[in-house]
């Protein structure tokens, strides 16, 4: 029989973006913004962890203009920040994480 569906299966995971529980958990264990991005990409966008690296561009990881803004929406919700449109010029994951770091620090200042 022909199988037209893809090989991967959506795992049942309790991780939910935008929940403050997740946020405080992340802070407690010291997870960086980069690692949060990695988690969202692997859990929600099904990107294989082995292809994710700081140098990888979001395009390389399979995101397009729409899914990048969708990702930013979750980031904004998670850390209570707003990413100004003109600042969303990052290409790589490291650049995205650096921007989040900066905006979170600016918020705390």
């Amino acid at each position: 029989m022909r199988r037209w569906y893809c090989e991967r299966r959506w795992p049942s995971f309790s991780f939910r973006c935008g929940s403050s529980k997740v946020s405080s958990f992340l802070e407690e264990v010291g997870v960086t913004h980069y690692e949060f991005l990695v988690d969202v990409l692997s859990e929600k966008y099904d990107v294989a962890k082995e292809v994710i690296s700081p140098e990888a561009t979001l395009t390389e990881l399979g995101l397009d203009s729409l899914t990048v803004v969708e990702l930013l929406f979750d980031v904004e919700d998670e850390f209570g920040i707003e990413v100004p449109e003109e600042r969303a010029t990052f290409q790589t994951l490291a650049e995205a994480a650096a921007l989040v770091d900066e905006l979170v620090q600016a918020k705390g200042a």
């Binding site: 893809c6 966008y45 099904d46 899914t67």
Partner: peptide, 12 residues
């Protein structure tokens, strides 16, 4: 949809 629709595609 199980394995019939990729997880990333379901977001859309």
């Amino acid at each position: 949809p199980g394995d019939r629709i990729k997880k990333a595609d379901r977001l859309l």
